[in-house]
Design a protein around this nucleic acid. Structure first.
Lengths: 71, 71
DNA sequence: TGTTTTTATACCCGAAAAGGTATAATATTG
DNA sequence: CAATATTATACCTTTTCGGGTATAAAAACA
């Protein structure tokens, strides 16, 4: 199963050479939140996720779901 | 200020001729949630929003934020 | 290897989201 | 206009997310 959001955050964070702790601080969220996010938890608060994505110049928006088969 | 998500949900719902109540039931969320969502509340749970968007064949994903001026 | 850094799990607590209900306020319709 | 349907606000309760802390596991590095 997929997790585009998870992959996006992990990739971007490593791209910037940040630890989860540093990302948490920069984003203004708790370390636990970053962990949960990167672990694929889905019951996260939208605004908190957006706080993190904002660091990467991104935000959560409705995108067409094209789920033909997998990947 | 914008609210793409709000506009998207309202438009799609009306497009299908549904009331907030009907949308809530179909999505499996409370009526109050739909109201909060369409009212621009940002501290919503991501998975619940996705339940709603799924009815429209969409999902929340990270999208580049292009905030040149407004609109 | 052993040492250190980073990440993953688990537990506790306060804050607040989600849902239900009730009631205003708007729209819609006759 | 009035009557009805739909949407917006407010209050209350239950549930759980988010944060802090502690510890275990895994990675990185000497």
């Amino acid at each position: 199963m997929k997790k585009k959001l998870v992959k996006f955050v992990k990739d971007r964070r490593k791209m910037l050479g940040l630890t989860q702790e540093e990302l948490a601080e920069k984003a203004g969220v708790g370390l636990r939140f970053i962990r949960d996010l990167e672990q694929g938890k889905e019951t996260l608060r939208m605004d908190k996720v957006n706080q993190v994505l904002a660091l990467f110049g991104h935000e959560l928006l409705p995108v067409e779901t094209k789920k033909l088969s997998d990947e």
